[in-house]
Design a protein around this nucleic acid. Structure first.
Lengths: 154, 154
DNA sequence: TTTAAAATGTAGCATAGGCTACAAAAAAGC
DNA sequence: GCTTTTTTGTAGCCTATGCTACATTTTAAA
């Protein structure tokens, strides 16, 4: 092993190290809520377009089995985002609806931003699905400003 | 339950449904490799800057316990991305080094793109950590073109 | 050289999110 | 109204990623 003294490193632990750890921490926690966000947005979609959101439809749209969907719906209920009645579909709580709206707006903004910098339409939709969960409010605001400038100048 | 006939939906399953499922599928698989990408990039960093990458350092930088880091390092080895000798640190295989280089280039490009559209420096670094794993090669190429245009015109 | 500290590794536990297989209830069709 | 199909739910298993607690080994210090 190389001794620390030989490396001529800063003697005190650099603050950049903790900062880096925080970045990863943040990315991990964003990922934890990503699945819930996807479900909430999809349920809201289904409720508006079809009038109901059934576990089977949710599962098919997400590309998972119904067992997986039901398990996650249980988690949504536990976290106060959704409610469900047997054979009566899934509904969102007030909190769930608010989250859905935020997620939807964010998704649109991310897709628009990607399109604006030249990403092909289909690719923008594809990539946005994963990207959106990691875009902070600060970045989102910057996206909105950028798009506004683009539209004005065009 | 609302009967399908009452909803006046398209009789055949829309292809958009399968497409949506594929988007989620892709985002999920991207997430599965995200952790490995982070480790590989960090190990490469440590090897270049400190000459060695020890589990303890990796853990501290990622903000996890050493037990967690060691477990993931075991997975890296299983997947052929890294090697390690007891008390001699972790090293990357050829494949691991190539992955690290791709990840690093992608990270830089994502940060630059975020900066270019007006995201504050610190926020760009923070968000890029989560975003980068979901940016496809197609989008990456678009980012590069966009940045080139920006630089030329400025 | 002997002891203390740090690093490494292992074991066992939890949660999340996948899956298949089985069971039960509701809806649809005859 | 009875039968079949669809939908829903449960149980049990797997992997990944966290964690704490304990054991071991190496490094550093006295």
């Amino acid at each position: 092993m190389i001794k620390k003294a030989e490396l001529a490193e800063p003697p005190v632990e650099m603050p950049g190290e903790a900062a880096q750890a925080q970045r990863f921490e943040k990315a991990r926690s964003a990922q934890a809520s990503a699945v819930l966000e996807d479900y909430v947005e999809l349920i809201d979609d289904l409720l508006m377009s079809a009038g109901e959101a059934r576990p089977t439809d949710i599962a098919r749209r997400l590309g998972v089995t119904h067992a997986t969907a039901i398990k996650t719906i249980t988690r949504l209920k536990r976290e106060g985002l959704a409610t469900s009645k047997l054979y009566r579909g899934v509904f969102l709580t007030q909190e769930g609806r608010e989250l859905a709206e935020r997620v939807r707006a964010r998704h649109r903004l991310v897709v628009d931003l990607l399109r604006a910098v030249g990403v092909p339409e289909q690719c923008a939709e594809l990539d946005a699905e994963g990207i959106e969960h990691h875009v902070s409010d600060t970045a989102l605001a910057a996206f909105a400003r950028f798009l506004k400038r683009q539209n004005v100048s065009s």
